[in-house]
Nucleic acid binder design. Structure first.
Lengths: 168, 168
DNA sequence: ATTGTTTTGTTAGTGACTAACATTGTGCAG
DNA sequence: CTGCACAATGTTAGTCACTAACAAAACAAT
């Protein structure tokens, strides 16, 4: 993290990281499958899909998904360690990392949309909603990392509200 | 495209592409900045941001953005060449390409959100909406490539409707 | 024909990985 | 305390995407 923050992610080589940790490059790759995954770990994602599944199936797909995330959010703790925020900031600061973070979300996106489909939603609608809501979530998290004034919770709330057109 | 379709994107090396085109690897890289960009070119994106800017500023951000895309869509031709569909299918079939396609959208996302902010929208709301709508668009495009029954237009319409909760 | 400009090739190097094999621990039964 | 199994580490060498520096063609306009 220190290296990434001072030199930037792209500018930091695995060799440097390994040197600072006093191990070999090889050892580094045995602990982290790739340089990206040092920073790109999303522990929240699994909980979200579960929470969406738990919502009543009568509302339209978008509402259900938004509610599911609100619900998951209620049970989530605020940024426990400062490490999370450092990570997010590093991700937000690198175009390639931002792009790759989408990859991490694919699994959650799939789980959410499959849940919606299982409950009778149209395939296109389900996939669209899952993608849109997760994109909104990610945008909120980046905003939180960028602007001191936000709480993770308030940022996400704001993002979800925007999706429901309650705000402008 | 032939190589990508038969062997897969990741499994195709730049050396192979260059050989098939009867040029050097070096020449390949002078024509395409990266292997990704052979397939990852989005000619529509710029038009979208313009169209969003042209919408009346009184509606909430989400509605405006959705309207902007609908409007841009009205003027866009159906999949001219078959090449577009081949490209999208190749992207959809590779996890890393799907992720990287987000990178291409970053510029459009920024332009849209900046437009919304300039017209008085909240920063968080603007960024959220831009991210969500573009994610929805991308999802629709992937669905179109996946399922023969869709037209680009009908798929995108369906996706936009889902975002406005008119459907389930 | 001559110059200048653009396009291509050559060579060599970097950085993220991977594979195969050797080496060093470290925990624990004897 | 010894010895052995098993894990964590190191070494070497290689692949693939990509870049930089410089040389050689190809082509155009003079």
């Amino acid at each position: 993290m220190d290296l990434f923050e001072t030199q930037g992610f792209e500018e930091t080589t695995v060799t440097q990281i390994a040197a600072k940790a006093e191990v070999t490059e090889m050892t580094f790759f045995r602990h982290f499958p790739s340089k990206d995954l040092v920073v790109l770990t999303d522990p929240y994602d699994p909980a979200i899909a579960d929470s969406v599944a738990a919502q009543p199936t009568d509302a339209p797909a978008l509402k259900r998904t938004v509610r599911g995330i609100r619900c998951a959010l209620g049970e989530l703790p605020e940024p426990e360690s400062e490490l999370v925020q450092r990570r997010v900031r590093i991700i937000a600061g690198s175009a390639s990392l931002r792009a790759k973070s989408a990859k991490t979300h694919t699994a959650t996106e799939t789980r959410i949309s499959e849940q919606l489909i299982a409950d009778g939603a149209d395939v296109l609608v389900a996939r669209t909603v899952a993608a849109a809501v997760l994109a909104a979530l990610t945008a909120a998290i980046f905003e939180w990392a960028r602007d001191e004034r936000w709480t993770l919770r308030t940022a996400i709330e704001g993002a979800l509200n925007a999706l429901e057109s309650h705000d402008d």
